[in-house]
Amino acid sequence: MPPLVELENVVKTYGQKEKTNAVDGVSLAVEAGEIYGIIGHSGAGKSTLVRLINGLERVTSGRVVVDGHEISSLKEREIRPLRLGIGMIFQQFNLFRSRTIAGNVAYPLRVAGWSKADRDKRVAELLDFVGLLHRAYDYPEQLSGGQKQRVGIARALATSPKLLLADESTSALDPETTQEVLRLLKKVNAELGVTIIVITHEMDVVRSIADRVAVLADGKIVEEGKVFDIFSDPQTDTAKKFISTVIRNQPATDDIQRLRSSHTGRIINVEVHESARVGEVLSHAHERYGVRFEIVYGGISAIQSKSFGSLTLELSGSDADVERLVTDLRALTTVEEVAA
């Protein structure tokens, strides 16, 4: 099956005299049924990128294909009906203040030309799905941020799109509400089979729901892959920095200084993952190697139900014994010396 969304060398340039490339040669493919994260700092071009997918912004060059339709070469008038098959939710929710919750959700159905009876039925169904049926006749300003985003999701799903674009959809929400909205997005993906492209600057969002992720910097994809792979083995500094915002299992410079001042032994970082039996080696550290160890820093997390992490150990014993233990650990996993 061809990918649902395909971008081929997409460029978007702004400005007439001083041209700046907001999106600079991006190619990616999103498979039907997956949740695809695009992470980047503000100004990395991710909001522009997502708008190229539903044609709200037009490409300067390159191809954008969604569900077999070449969005990048169609006229605005030809794209309009296709947008009914591409839902979109926004950071600021962008609900219509002049309409009730039900009216907001019904809006895309009006655009699609549904009859009043069909609209009412579908709106009730959607509001029930997002758990807001009892608020149907309230106005957006009466809802909390999380509720507003749930209405946004119901509105985006009204015409049963195959694809949902989520543009910083949790960035205006507190952590608890963020999780609530992410759970709902996961439910949308799992129960309705909707493919979701999640644009965010929060690595936690990617960790929580995405299957694959692209790291965007200066309009370019600098790293792309399965979320677990990016988290456990990031290649670029940008990716490493994003990961360190949610996972801090390796000591930072000031932590190392503190550790050095209170620990005299050799200090190493040991990478932990499921197949590496680090614990088994360590449990025999004393009897087999004559080495004592202390865990001085570290953490183990799970991404997509696979665990990975890092432990910082202080090893004490004779230099030769310690070296023997380190060598055996190296055979199992990555070991780094912690410099003074």
Binding site: N54, L56, I79, R80, P81, L82, R83, L84, I86, G87, M88, F90, Q92, N94, L95, F96, R97, Y107, P108, V111, A112, R155, A156, A158, T159
Partner: peptide
Amino acid sequence: GTIEAARAVGAS
């Protein structure tokens, strides 16, 4: 943003 939301559902 509300205008963009309307455009995003294909409104003319």
